[in-house]
């Protein structure tokens, strides 16, 4: 009987340790503890060029993460990128004239969507479209433009 009891206790401790490890991974390592997983509301933003923006990239305002990029699609009529942003339900007071930019975190970092608040008294709701957007800055295009301007300046 004694050995069975010890076995029971050890198996119990083993199962508990396994679930503690899973819980640790869920809470500390993955983003389960961060609020808003699939919840919140969706906003649509159309960009002429999204650079290398990826699904799940952060959406932030004033540097605070409000949500994530949920999906990226291509509009074959307007030749634009249609980006769906999933905003946490807690942040439901974004003005309708909010401005969406695509910036890069750091020099080589990943790209994210930065929202700048407008002044409208009305707020964006689920499925609404952000009208004012600015494309991602593509380095090659900027350098090309810079060289072009330099050349023009030199010929004058």
């Amino acid at each position: 009987m004694g050995t069975t009891r010890t076995t029971e206790i050890l198996v119990g401790a083993f199962m508990a340790a396994g679930f503690v490890a899973l819980f640790f991974l869920a809470m500390q390592v993955s983003n389960l503890s961060a609020a808003g997983n699939g919840e919140g509301y969706a906003l649509i933003a159309r960009f002429d060029n999204i650079g290398s923006l990826k699904v799940r990239a952060p959406v932030s305002m004033a540097g605070v993460r409000l949500g994530r990029v949920e999906s990226i699609a291509f509009d074959e009529v307007a030749y634009q990128a249609v980006v769906t942003l999933r905003i946490d339900a807690a942040y439901d007071q974004l003005p309708t004239d909010t401005f969406a930019n695509i910036y890069t975190a750091g020099l080589l970092g990943e790209q994210y969507v930065a929202l700048d608040p407008g002044g409208s008294p009305d707020f964006l709701g689920d499925g609404d479209q952000i009208e004012h957007t600015q494309s991602a800055l593509v380095l090659e295009r900027m350098i090309g433009q810079f060289l072009f301007n330099q050349a023009q300046g030199g010929s004058e």
Partner: peptide, 15 residues
């Protein structure tokens, strides 16, 4: 049953 529990322990201790 043991496999996922052991794998979780492995990953947690690895982190």
């Amino acid at each position: 049953i043991s496999m996922p529990l052991l794998a979780a322990m492995f990953s947690a201790l690895g982190v």
